[in-house]
Amino acid sequence: MFGLRTLLVAAAGVAASASAVPRAADLSVGDIVNALGVGFVKDINAFVTLESLTDNVITINFDVKNPLPIELTLDSVSATAGLNGTTFATFSHTFPKPGLVVPPLGTKNSGTINNVQLPQGGEASLAIIPFGILDLPNTNANVRAATIAGALGIPIALDGLKQTAVPVNYTLELD
């Protein structure tokens, strides 16, 4: 009797812990990318003007790295960026046709992205410059995999991507 009771308790414990583990069917592509630790953003370049201190808007560009042996094309991206749990920048951007084409195992710059909002304000955001990094706690991207020069491809929504300690280069244009 003791052996059967022990077996039942052990089985119940396994069943309870198995239910806490997400099933593969419940995972999004973004969840899998996050679990693998794949960071698509190599670095960010932020351009702060004197006007940014009053209108709370900056311009950025970033380098996207493609860890896959197939071409990826980004159609749109929206992201929040911050440090220590505080959001310092947000933006949404749609790339002009055919999209941002990133070669297999390569890197491509996003080009200029205007109207990046600074929810903490321009002056408060200056305080994060010395750190030289930003976290990306929530990035959503619409990509197409296996494109050919940006055409065709398999559409994939990458929602909820997370990346920490992305290097940031700040350029202050204060004249």
Rank of each mutant, 00 (worst) to 15 (best):
G3K: 15
G3C: 12
G3R: 15
L4Y: 12
T6L: 15
T6G: 02
T6Q: 13
L7I: 13
L7M: 13
A10N: 11
A10W: 10
A11H: 07
G13C: 15
A16M: 15
S17V: 15
S17D: 14
A18W: 14
A18M: 13
S19A: 14
A20G: 15
P22H: 11
P22M: 12
D26F: 12
S28G: 10
I32R: 14
A35E: 08
L36R: 12
L36Q: 09
V38L: 07
G39Y: 05
G39R: 12
F40P: 00
F40M: 09
K42D: 06
I44A: 01
I44H: 01
A46I: 06
V48S: 00
E51T: 13
S52N: 05
V57W: 01
I58D: 00
I60K: 01
N61M: 11
F62Q: 01
F62S: 02
F62H: 01
K65F: 03
K65I: 06
I70K: 04
I70W: 06
E71F: 14
E71M: 10
V77K: 06
T80M: 11
T80H: 10
T80S: 12
A81R: 04
A81I: 01
N84E: 14
G85C: 05
T86C: 03
F88D: 00
A89P: 04
F91R: 03
S92M: 08
H93M: 11
T94N: 11
K97Y: 10
K97A: 13
P98R: 03
P98T: 08
P98C: 06
L100V: 03
L100S: 00
V101F: 04
P103R: 13
P103C: 10
P104H: 07
K108F: 04
N109T: 13
S110L: 07
G111M: 06
G111Q: 07
T112G: 08
N114H: 14
V116C: 03
V116T: 04
Q117C: 01
Q117S: 10
Q117V: 10
G122E: 03
A124Y: 04
S125P: 02
A127I: 11
I129L: 08
P130F: 14
I133T: 10
L134E: 02
L136S: 05
P137C: 07
P137D: 02
N138C: 04
N140F: 07
V143W: 01
R144L: 13
A146R: 14
T147G: 02
T147F: 01
A149F: 07
G150M: 05
L152M: 03
L152D: 05
G153K: 03
G153H: 02
I154L: 15
I154T: 12
A157C: 05
G160I: 03
G160Q: 06
T164Q: 15
A165W: 07
P167E: 07
P167S: 08
Y170I: 13
T171S: 11
D175I: 14
